[in-house]
Design a protein around this nucleic acid. Sequence first.
DNA 1: TACAATAATTATACATCATACCTATTAAAC
DNA 2: GTTTAATAGGTATGATGTATAATTATTGTA
Lengths: 160, 160
Amino acid sequence: MDRDDADSTTPDRPRISDATLRQFTGYTMKRAFNVVQADVNAVLEEFGLRMVTYSALAIVGDNPGLSQSQLAQALAIERPNLVVIVDELEGRDLVSRDRVPTDRRTYALQLTSEGARLLARATEAVRRHEARITEGLNAEEEAILVSALKKIEATDIRRS
Amino acid sequence: MDRDDADSTTPDRPRISDATLRQFTGYTMKRAFNVVQADVNAVLEEFGLRMVTYSALAIVGDNPGLSQSQLAQALAIERPNLVVIVDELEGRDLVSRDRVPTDRRTYALQLTSEGARLLARATEAVRRHEARITEGLNAEEEAILVSALKKIEATDIRRS
DNA sequence: TACAATAATTATACATCATACCTATTAAAC
DNA sequence: GTTTAATAGGTATGATGTATAATTATTGTA
């Protein structure tokens, strides 16, 4: 994946073609998303966060008091795997597990004040990352990009 | 009769909001790509292929005689991990490792006739999958989608 | 000839992700 | 009211994906 400026020192390196795959929008989506993912992970690393943990903070922030099951569904990850994520966030005092009086099985998740502060800072950094990533797009292109992606997302057959 | 759909049987299930994340195009990319990936994997499973193994076949088909290192780079995976993939494809007689007389370190990869046949059939199936996924988009939307994704891909900072 | 670099490989460690199973609590059935 | 089913959270575990270090064979270079 390194571009070839075919400088004189390098031996002949015939460009590898991905023509067959490039006919597929899905392939281009994957290539583009790989770039986004690498960049956003680098950004979040400065806050000690990964994509999942940042997303978890954002969802909890938008839905204070939600249960772990609801959070798992929103993040599209399995319940057992969510436990360790919440463990981590709780251990760092970013999220609190509060008992619910009406149903003592469930926890109500909430951001701590430190969690809210970290989320705000990280969100600002992600916004700058987004601006970098989409700097080549004008407003109309980005609007169509987003709406097209949403239409693709809506073709999902699964979903209980 | 009553307000909205809140039908009497279901307990109150307040919709979970992902408003904070939805401000990011990258998040919508991930959600859309998850749908694409699930669908294409289901399609490829019928051929005993995964996304990597299908992509490997396609790249080898487009670049007969390329080396494993070149293939690894094209697929953006590490060399050691590619070995087992080629092992698998070679074991199924879809790809051949041919020795190169001018450089006895490298293998020249090629599709076998069976590999070419399977690639052609799988590609047809993936094409049908793509049609399903993008059926809600008109030609202009899809063109802008692809060009926007390519611009995002081109913002990649890495690449030696 | 000695030394560095490359291609393929092996071994390994780690993160991710899914499944099966368990406890407690609640809701439903009888 | 007791039994039964369903749900929330959790533990343990296995499969898979992915990255790194080190090894062998070969090639290129000082």
